[in-house]
Simulated assay, not measured.
Amino acid sequence: MQIIEGAGVWKPTAGSANDWVEHLRVPDLSVGTYRIPAGGLDDQSPHTEDEIYVVTAGRARIVTPGGAAEVGPGSVIFVPAGEEHRFDDVTEDLALLVIFGPAYGSRTPGP
C-alpha cells in the first residue's frame, strides 16, 4: 500500500502556467495532478495511453471530437488513447487527478 499525498490538489506555481506533476509510476499505470489556472489554455496533445481525469477543483469544459461537456468537482472523464481532447473555458483554477493506463509515456506512438 502507498498513500499518495497531494494528488489532485491545486497548488499555484510561479507564473501560474499549466502544471503537471507525476506522483506515482508503475508499469501498468501512473497517477498525477494536472493544473490549469482560470483563463489558462490547455495545450496538451493526445496521449498514447488511456486516461481517467477526476476533477478535484475548479470548473471548465472538456472538448473532444465527439462533443463538449461542462465539468466541475467530482466529474470523472474517460479519454481513450489517441483521442484529441482539451480543457477550455477554464472559469476557476482547475485541478485534475489523472490516471494513465499503462503509465504515461510508456507506449510508443504508432507510425
Rank of each mutant, 00 (worst) to 15 (best):
58 G>C: 13
19 D>R: 11
15 G>V: 11
5 E>F: 11
15 G>F: 10
43 D>H: 06
87 F>T: 12
43 D>T: 01
86 R>N: 02
26 V>L: 13
28 D>N: 14
13 T>E: 14
42 D>Y: 00
52 I>M: 14
34 Y>M: 06
46 P>E: 05
82 G>T: 01
54 V>N: 01
53 Y>H: 05
19 D>M: 07
81 A>N: 04
40 G>P: 08
39 G>A: 11
34 Y>D: 02
66 G>M: 03
20 W>L: 10
44 Q>E: 10
34 Y>V: 12
37 P>Q: 06
39 G>D: 09
22 E>V: 10
39 G>W: 08
15 G>Y: 09
87 F>H: 15
16 S>E: 15
76 V>Y: 04
16 S>P: 10
83 E>N: 08
10 W>R: 00
30 S>R: 03
5 E>K: 08
34 Y>N: 03
78 F>W: 12
46 P>H: 04
68 A>Y: 01
6 G>H: 09
11 K>T: 12
61 R>L: 01
18 N>P: 15
27 P>M: 02
8 G>A: 12
35 R>G: 13
49 E>M: 06
64 T>G: 00
16 S>H: 14
23 H>L: 14
21 V>Q: 05
37 P>V: 11
75 S>D: 03
68 A>E: 13
78 F>V: 12
46 P>I: 04
17 A>R: 13
39 G>R: 05
42 D>A: 04
39 G>C: 08
10 W>C: 03
47 H>F: 11
58 G>H: 09
47 H>E: 13
86 R>T: 00
7 A>P: 02
69 A>T: 08
78 F>I: 10
16 S>Q: 15
64 T>I: 00
37 P>F: 09
31 V>I: 12
28 D>M: 10
61 R>Y: 02
44 Q>M: 08
45 S>Y: 13
61 R>E: 09
83 E>R: 05
75 S>F: 04
16 S>N: 15
55 V>I: 15
49 E>S: 11
7 A>F: 01
17 A>I: 11
54 V>Q: 06
39 G>L: 10
43 D>I: 04
7 A>T: 05
42 D>Q: 00
10 W>H: 00
47 H>A: 14
49 E>W: 02
29 L>S: 05
74 G>V: 01
68 A>V: 09
29 L>V: 05
21 V>I: 08
19 D>P: 10
16 S>F: 15
40 G>E: 06
14 A>C: 14
63 V>H: 03
10 W>E: 03
8 G>P: 09
85 H>V: 05
32 G>P: 02
12 P>Y: 00
11 K>L: 09
80 P>A: 13
74 G>L: 01
33 T>D: 05
24 L>F: 08
66 G>P: 06
82 G>N: 04
28 D>C: 13
83 E>H: 09
60 A>L: 07
35 R>E: 14
66 G>V: 02
69 A>L: 10
48 T>K: 07
84 E>Y: 01
65 P>G: 07
20 W>V: 14
9 V>W: 10
15 G>D: 09
49 E>H: 11
79 V>C: 03
26 V>A: 10
84 E>H: 01
85 H>I: 01
56 T>V: 01
75 S>G: 12
29 L>K: 04
33 T>I: 07
29 L>G: 10
30 S>F: 10
31 V>R: 00
22 E>L: 06
60 A>Y: 02
